[in-house]
């Protein structure tokens, strides 16, 4: 578990750096949390609030490895694109330009996360093209869980909060691995610790 947390830490730190560069502003990162959530209790962790989720499937050596999700509350999503696009109205509706910006931000963050973790583990993980949804967060997560390769009653979520106080932006970087990917992580990490 400690090693997994360290893995998440390294990945998220790289993602935080890229976000910070894009915003030209400091980004604080929480300690990565590993949560094992029974699907029946998912609503206790992710509610029905409207949020922007940029979703990638984990591909590469393991073709369907799970998902990387960049979760941004609706309010934060507007703040984020406002900062990037030089706009100021915090209550405006999100438009196509915002969607492109969110996809791009998500892409850069997910790539940074995966590059860093893949380098550490020594195997290739690639993000699929991103998909953006701005909708009930629980509905989006539930849909992803339903289409996972291996049917599960519990899902493992690696979650790291990334916060930019200056622009009031709060986001969550979530990795939801398939069982096969999780096994590979554990094997690789054990090997690393033996050799290290």
């Amino acid at each position: 578990m400690d090693a997994m947390q360290e893995l998440g830490n390294i990945g998220a730190a790289h993602a935080a750096t890229t976000l910070s560069q894009m915003l030209s502003s400091p980004v604080e990162m929480s300690v990565p949390k590993i949560k094992v959530v029974d699907v029946a209790q998912l609503a206790n962790h992710i509610g029905e609030e409207s949020a922007a989720l940029v979703v990638f499937e984990l591909q590469g050596e393991i073709p369907h490895g799970g998902y990387i999700i960049i979760y941004i509350s609706r309010k934060s999503a507007v703040q984020l694109t406002n900062t990037m696009l030089g706009l100021t109205d915090p209550d405006r509706p999100l438009n196509e330009m915002d969607e492109s910006a969110l996809l791009e931000i998500g892409n850069i963050m997910a790539s940074a996360f995966l590059d860093a973790t893949a380098e550490l583990l020594g195997f290739i993980m690639l993000p699929s093209p991103p998909v953006l949804t701005i909708d009930m967060a629980h509905a989006a997560m539930q849909s992803l869980i339903a289409q996972m390769q291996e049917e599960i009653d519990e899902v493992m979520l690696f979650s790291t909060e990334l916060v930019c106080e200056e622009h009031k932006i709060d986001s969550d970087l979530i990795m939801m691995p398939e069982t096969s990917m999780l096994k590979t992580f554990v094997e690789r990490l054990e090997n690393l610790m033996k050799s290290g």
Binding site: V55, E57, S128, V131, T133, A139, A140, L144, A146, Q147
Partner: peptide
Amino acid sequence: GACMFEYFGNNLNIG
């Protein structure tokens, strides 16, 4: 029974 992620869904529209 919605289909929120067409791209990942491929041919399996679970909804």
